[in-house]
Nucleic acid binder design. Structure first.
Lengths: 196, 196
DNA sequence: GATAAAAACAAACAGAGTGTATGCAATAAA
DNA sequence: TTTATTGCATACACTCTGTTTGTTTTTATC
């Protein structure tokens, strides 16, 4: 019967190990912060070795980037799913509700809004985010204010997006009432989208 | 004549060395980020030794905290000076202008808005900030909206403050037009302060 | 199906950084 | 002046990161 050595295909082995390393890294990064999260502990949690880690990732920062990319992808997908399920006029409202819901996942706000920008820098975070909320916000604002300059609209989108981010972070960090922040942000969004 | 050994009082020696260490640390933290800023390089820039560093600060994080506290104090003072110089109705407008001006100091936005929260945490940053802008904002919003709940006003203050922070950071990081962001924020502030 | 090649992982190594302990010099106190 | 204290320097132990070398498992080739 020869049931020793289960013979796992490389592509599957690779994906599984990578996933285990990312999951373990996520947990340790959230618990200790980037600087205090050591690769020895990460691989202990992942039940792997540092050899495996450095085989899959160039360095500690690349591992962290993979964690950030995974979180960002989850957020983007949650927003797109929610936005796509309603008519266009409701898309931004549905999207912002979905944003708050998905950002409530434990550790996510810390990774995406605090550690990410600090470790990877704003430019890299922008590249990773790419389709996250801000883009749809920009389009909505342009439609509502065709008379205002591009720079003005862009600035407004950036600043509004930061307000959303901060609200999500505040809820995650202090356990503040999510409903209150969501109401405040919905109000700000509607004000910004009102033409005139 | 005996002009050897200039005999410096301890209190002065201490203050000078501390100041040199903080200034050098500020420069290296800004240039490399917290994780990649090494104490050997910091003391090299300060023309001191690691012995002096660890005599004045408990650890690397405490040194960083001292840098953050110095920056925060500068910002607070700039805002208070500007606010105090005008009549009360203009205080918030003057304060926000002063905020943008003082946050344009090289490296300051990075330290206070990116690295600070990541390294020290939001709670510690709140403690350090204490009188920074947000408090005056809160008071102004309460006066403008006496009918709204405390939680709502607080959430609005937090979120508006985050918008200011992000605007300052964007200007610092991308060299975006400060005037555009300042105009957008002034508009948001006025909208928020309009009763009704 | 045996053998060579490549990929996945493990283990050992080198270098650097952090924090501590100890020692010396300068100022302050007695 | 002597002693104590404070400020700083040097040396050490430890841990972490990234690299190199070695071993196992899978894949390709004959």
């Amino acid at each position: 019967m020869q049931e020793k050595s289960t013979r796992t295909p490389n592509v599957e082995r690779r994906a599984q190990m990578r996933a285990r390393l990312i999951a373990a890294a996520r947990a340790v990064f959230v618990e200790k912060g980037y600087a205090d999260a050591g690769t020895p502990e990460i691989v202990r949690v992942a039940e792997a070795t540092r050899g495996a880690l450095y085989h899959h990732f160039e360095d500690k920062q690349a591992l962290f980037r993979a964690v950030v990319e995974a979180e960002a992808a989850d957020v983007t997908q949650a927003i797109e799913t929610a936005s796509g399920a309603v008519e266009a006029s409701q898309a931004l409202a549905a999207g912002s509700h979905a944003f708050f819901a998905t950002m409530a996942v434990a550790g996510r706000a810390q990774i995406l809004l605090v550690d990410g920008p600090a470790v990877l820098g704003a430019a890299e975070m922008d590249r990773i985010d790419a389709g996250g909320g801000r883009q749809s916000l920009l389009v909505g604002l342009q439609a509502a204010h065709p008379e205002r300059s591009g720079a003005e609209i862009k600035a407004l989108a950036i600043v509004l997006s930061a307000a959303f981010d901060r609200a999500a972070l505040e809820v995650a960090q202090t356990g503040a009432q999510a409903a209150v922040f969501e109401a405040v942000l919905t109000g700000m969004l509607n004000t910004a989208l009102t033409p005139g």
